[in-house]
């Protein structure tokens, strides 16, 4: 049976099923969301997650994530 993770994602509670092998990584989450990882940055519990570590950064229920990108600004 798969676990369900509850993440606070960009200020909203969202639920995700963990993959068959058991754990959801930042890389897995971005794929699930359909985001191009080259154009975004991720903060987990107010700490930057370096892009090089997306595959090995495992998420836990209750994690607070911010996923941002560049937009027009002055």
């Amino acid at each position: 049976m798969r676990d369900v993770l509850t993440l606070l994602l960009n200020g909203e509670n969202r639920q995700f099923e963990t993959p068959a092998h058991g754990l959801l990584s930042v890389l897995g989450l971005l794929a699930e969301l359909g985001l191009d990882m080259r154009k975004v940055a991720v903060e987990r519990n107010e700490e930057i997650v370096p892009r090089s570590r997306y595959a090995e950064t495992w998420l836990a229920s209750g994690d607070q994530l911010e996923i941002v990108h560049f937009i027009g600004g002055g």
Binding site: N10, K39, A41, V68, H69, F70, I71, G72
Partner: peptide, 15 residues
């Protein structure tokens, strides 16, 4: 440029 949350409901929106 500004840094803002990605709109998760429209991940393929032009950037």
């Amino acid at each position: 440029v500004a840094v803002r949350r990605v709109n998760l409901s429209d991940p393929k929106a032009p950037m």
